[in-house]
């Protein structure tokens, strides 16, 4: 750093008397010899003087009254806030954070993802389900006694959603039948009386099984196409035999036909589950279609569909082995 640059860097503090004696004498000595640095010092002093001579701007005459008014209004707000949080010893930033967190929690508790009307226990459905369950138990019990199998049980919680955010549930009980003419995985399961399906070859059906759980409506259409292919392959005179898993495709096709789509599908022990989204007005049509299947179907109360454009439906295909 040249002497002039070094001196100029310290001129500001020099003119305020904020440099030590040794540095001050060195700067003074330099200033005596350097007119440019003297000019620089004069400029800085002029700036400082200009700021110092700025006349003070006066506050409003009623400053204190304004302050009292503002303190009164802010004090009220503060007291309200303190009453909420001071007992817990929470500081101000945390107060805000906790208030926001509480708000978010309340929002997610009372406004679930899919808003549904409040679910009241429809007594008619409960009664119906119980009757069905009892009838099913007695029938299956008899069958079970014959075949050694156990009867599927249906309870209120299986049919009516427990919470508003849960999908409506449709249960399809697959009647257990002795295989007629089929071997291995083949079994006479269901018959769509309106559009009977034909038996399919194991290889073709295996390929179809890999496409389980179509993600959208187009995938549902694939199921329909596959069935058309199956028809061509099997011929009109074949027995109405489908593989057990074929019902899943049939259900998906019905969902697509009524204007819905299959969102997801997965398998549990002794049951397959399809998660679907259907227009609420299609629930009745879907019920009719499912009744055409050779399975016992349990539908939720139609009242649950009121006031909603679309329904999220969980179709459970329960098979008793």
């Amino acid at each position: 750093m040249t002497p002039c640059r070094e001196i100029r860097a310290r001129l500001s503090e020099f003119m305020d008397g904020a440099v030590d004696a040794k540095a001050a004498s060195r700067i003074k000595k330099h200033l005596e010899a350097c007119p440019l640095c003297r000019e620089e010092l004069a400029s800085l002093q002029a700036v400082s003087k200009a700021l110092g001579t700025l006349k003070a701007v006066k506050p409003p005459d009623d400053f204190l009254e304004q302050l009292h008014g503002r303190m009164a209004s802010e004090g009220l707000l503060r007291r309200l806030f303190q009453r909420r949080f001071i007992p817990f010893g929470i500081k101000v930033p945390l107060k805000l954070a906790s208030a926001v967190a509480a708000g978010v929690l309340i929002f997610f508790v009372f406004y679930p993802k899919q808003t549904q009307p409040p679910v009241m226990a429809p007594t008619g459905v409960v009664r119906e389900v119980r009757e069905r369950t009892l009838a099913s138990k007695s029938t299956k019990g008899r069958e079970g006694a014959r075949t050694g199998g156990s009867a599927p049980e249906s309870t209120w919680s299986e049919v009516v959603p427990k919470r508003m955010s849960e999908p409506l549930e449709i249960v399809l009980y697959v009647k257990k039948s002795a295989p007629t003419g089929g071997k291995g995985p083949y079994r006479r399961v269901l018959e769509d009386k309106t559009k009977p399906l034909k038996a399919v070859s194991p290889a073709a059906d295996q390929r179809a099984l890999k496409r389980k759980g179509p993600p959208d409506g187009a995938a549902g259409a694939r199921f329909t196409d596959r069935r058309t292919d199956e028809k061509k392959k099997a011929g009109a005179g074949s027995a109405p035999l489908v593989k057990k898993e074929g019902l899943e495709a049939r259900v998906a096709a019905h969902v697509v036909r009524v204007g819905g789509r299959v969102i997801d599908s997965f398998e549990k022990t002794k049951e397959k589950i399809l998660i679907c989204r259907i227009p609420s007005e299609a629930l009745e049509a879907l019920e009719k279609r499912f009744k055409a299947l050779d399975a016992e179907s349990v539908f939720p109360d139609k009242a649950l569909a009121k006031g909603r454009d679309f329904l999220r439906v969980r179709v459970r295909i329960v098979t008793a082995d």
Partner: peptide, 30 residues
């Protein structure tokens, strides 16, 4: 009363606006 003039003036010079200065001077005292 002893300090509001100085605080108001400082706020005014910092912000260049009398309304803002008044608001901030009051905020300071609160």
């Amino acid at each position: 009363k002893r300090h509001h003039g100085r605080i108001f003036n400082l706020c005014f010079r910092m912000l260049g606006d009398s309304d803002e200065a008044n608001d901030l001077a009051q905020e300071t005292f609160i």
